[in-house]
Simulated scan of single mutants.
Amino acid sequence: MKTARVLMAALAACAMSLAPQAYAQTVHYPGGKSTFDGKCAVCHQAGGKGMDGLAPPLVEYPGKYAGSPDGRAQLGHTVLYGMFGPIKVKEKNYNFKMPSFASLSDEEIADVLNYVVFDLNAQHGSAKPFDVAEVKAWRAGPLDQTAVHQHREAVLKGLGL
């Protein structure tokens, strides 16, 4: 009986020591994770799980957006210029004023978008990574937060979401 307890305790200890590694998220974009953790996780929470009623989760839609030019631009414009107004994600309503992060460098924006799309989203289809040139092009055509919100509706309809 004592041997069984010792064996069970040893197995439990091994399982506990392996658990964090087994469930650890692989991070391909550490710079993007750092930016996300410092700027975005306040509202979107660690791992992009979102905050009910305030900030939507970022673990599904961005991966779907990233496969189309309009969706990619929507993601970029949202980070660059912010967005406000009510939105719905998977039958949940959110009403938040996301601030502009235009003060971030083009590289930081590309990295954080890559982190969200490729590290937080399990499914991102054939999306290609974001790059600095793409972000620079979005900066050349600035939008206000209302236009970003309106464009989102068109992107959702185009993607069938």
Rank of each mutant, 00 (worst) to 15 (best):
S34D: 13
N114T: 01
D52P: 13
P99E: 06
I109M: 03
Q25I: 10
G38Q: 13
T26C: 05
E107V: 01
P99Q: 09
S100E: 05
M16N: 09
L75C: 03
E91Y: 08
Y81A: 05
A22G: 09
L18M: 13
Y23I: 10
C40V: 02
A19D: 07
Q21H: 15
E107Y: 09
L80C: 03
V6M: 13
C14H: 09
A66F: 04
A9W: 03
F84A: 11
Q45H: 08
S68A: 07
D70K: 11
L113M: 06
V79M: 04
G53R: 07
M83K: 15
A110W: 02
L113E: 00
L7N: 08
I87Q: 10
M16W: 13
A9L: 13
Y94Q: 05
G32Y: 00
A4V: 07
A41Q: 09
L54E: 10
D52G: 09
G50H: 04
V89D: 08
S103P: 05
K39Q: 14
N95R: 11
L80D: 02
Y65D: 10
V27E: 00
N114E: 01
K90C: 06
G32Q: 00
P62D: 03
A4I: 09
K88C: 09
G85E: 03
V6T: 12
G53P: 02
Q21C: 15
F101A: 05
Y29K: 02
D106G: 02
G63P: 04
D106A: 08
A4P: 04
E60L: 13
A22F: 11
I109P: 04
A24N: 08
F101W: 07
A66V: 08
K92D: 08
M83E: 13
K49P: 08
K92L: 08
G82R: 00
P30A: 01
V89Y: 07
Y94H: 06
A55E: 01
D111V: 00
G76V: 12
Q21F: 15
Y81N: 08
E107P: 00
G82N: 05
Q25S: 14
S105F: 06
K49L: 12
L7G: 06
T35Y: 05
A22S: 12
